[in-house]
């Protein structure tokens, strides 16, 4: 067990070092993108819109934009890092060693979480500047932030395991995660939707993450926050199990 923990800390250290070594690619772009969102959607367009749940539009979208950054960066980091390790074949360093599969998964996932949460903190700082964000319930901010970055890092790892070429790294973020995030209540409250579309929206897991995270900042929610936490825990268990299964089977990494 001690050996496995040392191996895990090594992978985490390597992943974290990578994020800060290429900070100009990993940390700066999402902050610039989110700043543009705040300026365009929050300040220019948002000033023309009415309040939602008692908050101006800028304040309403801020938690969703932070969550969007956490989701995309957690996912992107794990998928690109693991695929890069496969592409350069340095994943073999791990595979020939006695490092257990769970340590490999948690090592890469820790990198995704570090990047997702670092970007989340940076975007929070930006949003404080634009929206004067306050904290309603720190516990839910932390729990939703941690669980969401964990879940999306695990999902990115699965994408990385299956990816065979560079195109495969961007397909899921482009065609699945981005649409689900935009439809996940970042820019609107689902209470504004007709009944049918409100029900349909609840199939989208991202809505629970955004809603719970927003509750932590603003104290308003459309869905049960405990339900959101439960869904994230279920997703985390399923995705962690799926990662272990795929590594054990050697999918994408062993012939």
């Amino acid at each position: 067990m001690k050996d496995a923990l040392i191996a895990l800390s090594c992978i985490s250290r390597k992943e974290t070092t990578r994020i800060f070594r290429i900070w100009i690619q990993t940390l700066v772009p999402p902050v610039i993108t989110m700043t543009l969102y705040f300026i365009i959607f929050g300040r220019l367009i948002g000033s023309q819109l009415r309040d939602i749940g008692g908050y101006n539009y800028m304040a309403f979208i801020a938690p969703g934009l932070i969550m969007m950054s956490i989701i995309t960066n957690s996912y992107t980091n794990t998928v690109s890092s693991f695929f890069s390790a496969k592409f350069q074949r340095n994943v073999e360093e791990l595979l020939v060693s006695p490092t257990p599969d769970w340590a490999i998964v948690l090592g890469y996932v820790s990198g995704g979480m570090v990047r997702g949460l670092c970007v989340g903190v940076l975007v929070t700082v930006v949003s404080i500047f634009f929206a004067g964000l306050s904290v309603y319930n720190l516990f839910f901010i932390v729990i939703f932030g941690l669980l969401t970055s964990f879940v999306f890092s695990l999902a990115g790892m699965i994408n990385g395991i299956f990816a065979k070429k560079f195109d495969d790294v961007s397909i899921i973020p482009t065609f699945v995660i981005t649409p689900l995030t935009y439809l996940g209540g970042v820019f609107y409250s689902i209470s504004l939707l007709p009944d049918f579309w409100r029900t349909v929206s609840k199939i989208n897991p991202i809505i629970y993450m955004v809603d719970g995270f927003r509750y932590g900042f603003l104290g308003i929610h459309d869905i049960s926050v405990y339900g959101g936490v439960s869904i994230l825990v279920v997703f985390a268990v399923i995705l962690f199990g799926a990662n272990l299964y795929l590594l054990k089977k050697g999918v994408g990494i062993r012939s």
Binding site: Q88, E93, S97, P98
Partner: peptide
């Protein structure tokens, strides 16, 4: 064939490998 990360330092590549074996 070369199978290390070309972006990492020599010392890090070697020490990480030792870590994977529990050192």
């Amino acid at each position: 064939e070369y199978n290390f990360s070309i972006f990492e330092k020599v010392i890090d590549i070697v020490c990480q490998q030792a870590g994977y074996y529990g050192m």
